[in-house]
Design a protein around this nucleic acid. Structure first.
Lengths: 210, 210
DNA sequence: ACCTGAACACCGTTCAAGT
DNA sequence: ACCTGAACACCGTTCAAGT
């Protein structure tokens, strides 16, 4: 399985590099075997000798991208501040590498991407005095909120023009049981940053038991 | 634009029905113009007279599926309990219609799917005494947490066998700054249900200012 | 008004054949 | 050991031609 051990693998490396360039500029869908082959100057069918399949090539591309990932950064004094800064960093890293996130999702390997941040988070929670399953619950809650937020944000941003966004939809709502000011507020666009800060702040306040 | 007004549209309906069957059983990727045509007993190119493009056919399929969506259900007495039950319903509805969620995401129309639940949520928050932007922040936080959770859960479940999940990854972690019991807890698999309850409970506790 | 057929420009993958 | 070429089974879409 997995194609071939592939000798020294200089040709394989060229294929992965070409594939990576395609993924980085256009996402996983932009990688076709024929385009990779053309880029490297080889017949499309030659790829299969080195790499097994398109899916395996995508896997090798992801490996290469993961290796170049920056380490998570933590700043601040209080545990809440440090964890919040970590979460902010996770979000901005993810937003800066959306094609990579798409690729990881496609391969079902998103968990790997978040592992380094998870480890740092666990360290911070330990330092904050949380232990055992309580700490694990807290860690997973933070991870899911950040991860979910990024996923949602990504799919919202991917929505092209001509698609009804939430504020437009709300403008058509007319329900006497809903506070008019609330309706008005929902009809205004939000900045994702503010929403992220709000949600994260609420969660941390509760999770860290302040 | 958008193809054609298309007369009475009985043929169009047959195409949408066939497309819907494909999407429901295999997700958006499973819908090909040629398969739809074969199902209806017509040349692939005939579709374009009625429907414009594959993307528009997918849009029509989504419209049909949205029309059959169940209404959100709310149970319980306290505001926290009622909102929690709504959130649980949103999650289970979403998990029961993953192919539809995928389609909505593909078309950038996820917001539409959540609108009915949003309206009910707004009603409950109003009844709970929240108003204006504070209520809007709370609503959006709940929506993003639930929506993000469902998205993440979906992409985790889509990860086939042979992919390293979080517990396996954690078994390889060895960091003295991390509480050993925390590490052990992270190495055990979680049930998504418990994590959802925990996260939701934490968020609602903070958002409803209890 | 509605549908077909041929055609174009794409895909991933297999496999015999070459060097 | 490594690569090519032909081939197969797919795609979405356009467009002239039929009825």
């Amino acid at each position: 399985m997995a194609g071939r051990a592939s000798g020294d693998g200089v040709m394989r490396q060229r294929l992965v590099d070409a594939g990576r360039a395609l993924v980085e500029s256009g996402g996983p869908d932009a990688l076709s075997m024929r385009k990779v082959a053309a880029e490297v100057g080889v017949a499309p069918t030659a790829i299969y000798w080195h790499v097994g399949s398109r899916e395996e090539l995508l896997g090798a591309v992801l490996d290469a991208m993961i290796a170049d990932l920056p380490h998570p950064v933590v700043r601040g004094r209080t545990p809440a501040a440090r964890i919040a800064s970590l979460a902010r960093g996770m979000r901005s890293d993810a937003l800066a590498t959306t094609h990579m996130q798409q690729l990881a999702r496609h391969l079902g390997r998103s968990a790997e991407l978040f592992l380094p941040a998870q480890i740092v988070l666990a360290r911070e929670l330990s330092a904050a005095g949380l232990h055992g399953t309580a700490a694990a619950d807290a860690a997973r809650a933070v991870l899911f909120v950040v991860g979910g937020f990024v996923l949602l944000e990504d799919s919202y941003r991917a929505a092209g023009p001509g698609v009804a966004r939430n504020p437009e939809l709300w403008r058509g709502v007319d329900d006497p049981a809903i506070d008019p000011e609330l309706r008005a507020a929902m009809s205004r666009p939000t900045t994702p940053d503010a929403l992220f800060e709000y949600t994260l702040g609420r969660l941390l306040a509760s999770v860290l038991g302040s």
